[in-house]
Design a protein around this nucleic acid. Structure first.
Lengths: 371, 371
DNA sequence: CTGAAAGCGCTTACAG
DNA sequence: CTGAAAGCGCTTACAG
């Protein structure tokens, strides 16, 4: 494995002249730098008068603490690497915002890496970020990440939290979404409303899809209803196209009366396809999605879906990593984040409801009915 | 001004045991650490045999360069702070992704801060990030940022690039969007299509709005057409409500035949309001937006709008900051990023076009007709 | 071509 | 309560 070599970059920090250091402050305050350091760290050892003098000097000179130097000396780190597969996806952007926020509150700075779903870029980004010696890594793996490649890239870093996607045999913490329960909630909701010919739509090869399909299957089994799975890539346009296939070749009798979609994109694509055939979502056919992207609340009819609350997931991921930092030797653990059903018009429960009303955003609720 | 004091955080970097250093490698390779350092930096001084021996050892021990230590010694920095007002807005998330990507390519790591549009959080975030001694700062200011507060927070940092929002009297670089030209393009497009009663909709107090309104005004002046400005907060729901006011109280004769909206959110809200009155966007009334958010291409009818290409803006911002790092003493400069008209169905130019076709995404083009 | 020494800005025992 | 000294992992003149 080729060692990546050092590439020189760099300017004086901030571009200003020589920055103020402990020594400058110490000299001006007539104390040693040890004393200034003690003041900075709030030590009770320092005499009140001395402290006051030093603090005044600190302010006067606009001293800025150099955390990198401190970290070097203390052999600690106050940064966390956050590596995201696709920042242009609002779902992951929200996740990143939540994680950065929570990490910041805990005193860590976030080193951002964006891989654009490319495993190669992921390798490069990780290598580069690790040179900044983060205390840990939060990684939402690129689609198709190779376990051994990842392992190599992460090297001896042990404080790693994977988000959303499993990586086979990875010895790291995992924050997963409760895909199975989510799909179960959606399916159960449709069953309760009286639908009987419920299709799972958007089937493809991914662990998330497998789990959602299985949640769908279980709910139907419990109710003793027949299942039917229709494959389609998890892409809006493809879903629109597949919609035709789903409804065109079926006579009215065993035409599906409800569709559990893999995710919101698929659901929105499907709704577009329905419209082309004069079928009305929420009236002629019930539809559910998964993710609760912003558009779900804005489309007409509004989309019943499973809320994942990515911002809270980000905070949760940060929390888990921070716990890991406290206990580096604890065995890896896998946490499954709860999801919530958001009932809107597309499932037929409230087809009459206006789509322009605001979502009250009952975070944490297991079921929220949005009228 | 109270000095923010040091908060202790930190774990051993990566959570592993003692990490491999230059000394470990040097010892194992039977050379001094100077030599290893030279190898790392690709110095031609080192004998080929020595180099090979050292590199083998580097690989064997999985040595990871400690950039922070190097930066300390060299008095340079290889990080850039990226502070974003609202990461959950896809526009800014894309911007951040582009910036992080370009900075990474240039060898800089991105320190991410998210302020959630709060000037107070912005102060805190900046203070914290500056302790990591970034070479520069890319800042998309929170709404309502106070110039003096910002100046204070930034302290002696000079390498600052503002994005999108001006801050009065700020001595920093600025990357702005060509709001005026964008609104002019949209208005001119409508005029060309033959519309004559064109309203500017979504007027409110912000520099961006002022500029867009002025672009609208100029285009009308050139054509000798009457102007009309309708105020509305730049929020979707409010736009929907205001739509009623816009069309309800007017008889058919001088009802607007086209509307230039402040941005896409306003345009989408307006379209919803139109639908409630049985008016069809792109047929009964022409509509244009601004931003080209993802939804613009997906709504029915698709929305004619002004593309800002936030990812490219992110890359551009990174490029400008990198230039600034090379020339810290150059006077501040202000760059206005070009925008492009994306013609879709809502302006009536192609009302018949399906909304499910893909946007060819002709980036860089000044005008792209999307059928 | 290679090594010994000094130093970046900080912290932390250890004396006093 | 305060200061002198050593050292974190690196780089860089300077000898040899």
């Amino acid at each position: 494995m080729a060692q990546s070599r050092v590439t020189a970059v760099g300017r004086t920090p901030g571009g200003q002249g020589a920055s103020v250091t402990l020594v400058d402050v110490a000299r001006a305050a007539g104390v040693s730098r040890s004393t200034v350091s003690l003041v900075l760290r709030g030590s009770p050892l320092v005499h009140a008068d001395t402290r006051a003098r030093v603090e005044a000097e600190l302010d006067r000179q606009q001293y800025v603490y150099n955390r990198a130097a401190a970290a070097l000396r203390q052999r600690t780190s106050s940064s966390v690497a956050l590596v995201i597969n696709d920042l242009s996806n609002p779902f992951f952007a929200e996740f990143a915002a939540g994680a950065a926020e929570a990490l910041g509150e805990a005193g860590y700075v976030t080193l951002l890496g964006s891989t654009g779903e490319s495993p190669q870029r992921q390798q490069a980004v990780l290598a580069s970020l690790l040179e900044h010696a983060p205390a840990g890594v939060i990684l939402s793996p690129a689609e198709g990440s190779e376990p051994t490649g990842l392992r190599n890239a992460l090297g001896r870093i042990r404080n790693v939290l994977l988000f959303n996607r499993e990586v086979e045999g990875a010895p790291w913490d995992l924050l997963a979404l409760d895909n199975e329960a989510g799909a179960g909630l959606a399916t159960g909701h449709l069953i309760e409303l009286g639908y009987r010919r419920i299709v799972f739509f958007g089937d493809h090869a991914s662990s998330a899809c497998r789990q959602r399909r299985s949640g769908y299957r279980r709910a139907l089994e419990v109710a003793g209803l027949p299942m039917r799975v229709v494959a389609a890539p998890p892409v809006r346009q493809d879903a629109t196209a597949a919609a035709l296939q789903l409804f065109e070749n079926l006579d009215a009798v065993d035409r599906p009366d409800a569709v559990v979609c893999y995710n919101d994109s698929v659901a929105l694509g499907l709704m577009a396809g329905l419209a082309m055939h004069g079928l009305r979502a929420g009236i002629d056919v019930a539809i559910t999605g998964f993710d609760d992207i912003a558009e779900a609340a804005l489309v007409t009819p509004t989309l019943t879906t499973i809320a994942v609350d990515p911002r809270s997931r980000g905070r949760e991921a940060a929390g888990l990593l921070l716990q890991r930092l406290q206990a580096p030797d604890a065995p890896p653990r896998s946490v499954t984040a709860a999801v919530a059903l958001r009932v809107r018009a597309s499932s037929g429960a409230s087809a009459q409801a206006s789509s322009f009303l605001r979502d009250p955003g009952a975070a944490g609720a297991q079921v929220s009915l949005v009228l």
